[in-house]
C-alpha cells in the first residue's frame, strides 16, 4: 500500500474513534431521556435524533456546513470563542460521522435501557442509592451490552460515512480524505482499480474486526454474569 493509502486508513480510524467516543456520553444521555423521560416534545426529540437516518447524507452534510462552517452561526461562535474549527478539518469529518452514526447508537442503547428491570432500580433505591448512583451502579452495568453494540454500530457507520463528510469537509488528502473518500477518488481516475480493491479489502477487514471485537466483549460480559 502507498503512503497515501495508509494515511487515509489512519485518518479513518482516528475520525471514527473520535466520533464514537465523543458522541457516546451524549448518546447514552439521549437514550436514557428517550427511554425514561416523560416530557412535552419527546417525540420531537425522537424525530430530531432519527433525522440523519432518513435525510439524504448530502443534505445532512450541507446543513452541517451551513451551521458549523466558518461563517455559520455555531461554527463562527466556536471558532471565535474557543478556536475550534470544524470546516475542512478532520474534526469536521468526525463531527459529520458522529451525527450520522448517532441515531443508530441511540437506538441500540435505548432498547437496552428499556430492557433493564426497573424493580432492580427501586431495590437499589431502598438500599440507599440516590438516583444518580442507581444509574451508575445498576442501570449502566445492566445495559452495557447495548452500549457496546451502540458504540460498534456508531463506529462502523463512521468508517463508511461518505456523503455528509465529503459535503461538509470536502476530500482533502491528509486532512479529510477518509477511506471511502479515497476509494471514491480512485474509482474516478484511470488505473485506480487495483488500489481501490486493496482499500476495499482493508475496509472489510476493519469492519469484521470491529464486529468480532464487540462479539468477544459481549460474550465476556455474558460469561461474567453466568454461574461462576
Amino acid at each position: 500500500m502507498t503512503a497515501e493509502e495508509w494515511t487515509a486508513v489512519r485518518l479513518s480510524l482516528l475520525v471514527a474513534t473520535t466520533a464514537t467516543l465523543a458522541s457516546l456520553p451524549l448518546g447514552i444521555a439521549t437514550a436514557w431521556v428517550l427511554a425514561r423521560g416523560k416530557f412535552w416534545g419527546k417525540s420531537l426529540l425522537d424525530t430530531l435524533v432519527h433525522l440523519p437516518l432518513i435525510l439524504p447524507p448530502v443534505v445532512t452534510g450541507y446543513l452541517l456546513l451551513l451551521s458549523f462552517g466558518r461563517r455559520g452561526p455555531i461554527g463562527a461562535f466556536l471558532a471565535d470563542e474557543f478556536g475550534i474549527v470544524f470546516s475542512f478539518r478532520w474534526t469536521g469529518a468526525a463531527l459529520a460521522c458522529a451525527v450520522m452514526g448517532f441515531p443508530l447508537m441511540v437506538r441500540a442503547i435505548r432498547l437496552s435501557i428499556e430492557a433493564v428491570d426497573r424493580r432492580l432500580e427501586s431495590a437499589a433505591g431502598t438500599l440507599g442509592a440516590s438516583p444518580l448512583w442507581v444509574f451508575a451502579t445498576v442501570t449502566l452495568p445492566l445495559c452495557l451490552p447495548g452500549i457496546i453494540a451502540g458504540a460498534i454500530l456508531g463506529f462502523a457507520k463512521s468508517m463508511g460515512e461518505f456523503g455528509a463528510t465529503i459535503t461538509f469537509v470536502s476530500n482533502i488528502p491528509g486532512e479529510t480524505q477518509t477511506l471511502p473518500s479515497l476509494i471514491y477518488t480512485l474509482t474516478q481516475v484511470p488505473g485506480g482499480d487495483a488500489a481501490a480493491m486493496r482499500l476495499t479489502l482493508v475496509s472489510i477487514a476493519i469492519s469484521m474486526l470491529a464486529l468480532l471485537g464487540s462479539e468477544l466483549l459481549a460474550r465476556r460480559i455474558g460469561a461474567r454474569r453466568q454461574t461462576a
Partner: peptide, 20 residues
C-alpha cells in the same frame, strides 16, 4: 423523605438481587 434517605431494608417477594 425520598426512598434512598430513609434507611429502610426492603425484602421483596421476588428477591431482586442484582444479576451483575
Amino acid at each position: 423523605v425520598p426512598t434512598h434517605r430513609r434507611r429502610i431494608g426492603y425484602v421483596f417477594q421476588d428477591s431482586r438481587l442484582f444479576p451483575h
